[in-house]
Design a protein around this nucleic acid. Sequence first.
DNA 1: CATCTAATTAGATAATTATTTAAATGGATT
DNA 2: AATCCATTTAAATAATTATCTAATTAGATG
Lengths: 200, 200
Amino acid sequence: MQLDRLVRFHKTIGDVTRIRILALLKNGPLHGQALADKLSVSAPTITHHMAKLREVDLIYERRDKNTIYFYLDEKSLIQQSEAIVKKVQSAAELVTSADQEKVRQDELKAESILRNFFTKEGTLKHLPAQHKKKLLVLHHLVEGLQPGKKYLESELNDYIRQFHPDFATIRREFIMNHFMYREQDIYELNPRELWGTSKL
Amino acid sequence: MQLDRLVRFHKTIGDVTRIRILALLKNGPLHGQALADKLSVSAPTITHHMAKLREVDLIYERRDKNTIYFYLDEKSLIQQSEAIVKKVQSAAELVTSADQEKVRQDELKAESILRNFFTKEGTLKHLPAQHKKKLLVLHHLVEGLQPGKKYLESELNDYIRQFHPDFATIRREFIMNHFMYREQDIYELNPRELWGTSKL
DNA sequence: CATCTAATTAGATAATTATTTAAATGGATT
DNA sequence: AATCCATTTAAATAATTATCTAATTAGATG
């Protein structure tokens, strides 16, 4: 994971109030006022904390009239909390030959699956229903995007349309599986460590 | 793990320099000067960071003459980085079990309040002005509605009128406090976790 | 159009903290 | 004893940030 993002994640978790928020959300969604009441802090304080949590994808939200319900993204919490270990380990990690062998086999499997879901011309027939295969296909699609580049929604749509007419579904899948994130109407790739794993 | 310690752990990790230190130590022990050189910071800065890392047991040290060698405690890193996930889980459970302790007492209080605002015949005298008591009364009223069932406005009015002639106010309170949801002219119960809390 | 409500923004304050330079400590070596 | 060297402490500064109150925005309701 990008160092900066890793730092921001831990800075975000390193606050009592925010840990309490995560614990409360673990029992189900809550709106801002409810959180403010339960934690005995003001509404703006909640806004502040939710912005931090959102920034590192620990929550997502659903609007109902004037009320916004916050949900815990537990998968994201698990993924990111493990990332620090990987980061430190990767400093000296030697890839064993056994690993390399497995990597090659997985590549072959992946290629075969991709051949199945893409035409010879390179367009996508349809999204796989099976979760891991779907991730593999999304991973493949997203490879054509530039890390760090900011995309307008229309640009992203155009890119996806090269492969399949239903850009809306695929764009949504990108977000849901943490390949990309959206800020206002700007889309950007996430660091690869946050991508839904396509390990076979 | 203690909440305070968990916070300190993440605060400690939430710093670029300290993550770099951990990554360097993963390749083997280093002394303070070496770290200062590699990271281009002053010796006191290293002292400062090592104190933080020591405080949460991420390093241990061995002295040789005047030189102190720092070692990474990787097991501790792994264990503590996973702790947040468990904490969120167990804190969430705590919240619910703490509630359970209070539940019986609250039930008794609630019954007493309801007796106050309802007649022996079961009709509502008037809506309480106090917010939490009002929620309690609304909660009680809404218990007679079927989850998942779609109500026409007129049906809902009829239901409420069993308790009180001013169905419009009460219907509006149902919506405002998230007991129900309206789409066009169809009313439906919200899931209970969205209801206005009637905790006393 | 006026009002309500939940959420956000703006602005201010107080606390925390990463960093530096300068001075002090505490063993080892001569 | 005098000195050397790695580390620590002290003091100062600058940046970050958690929190509050007051004002504003944005939707929904009447």
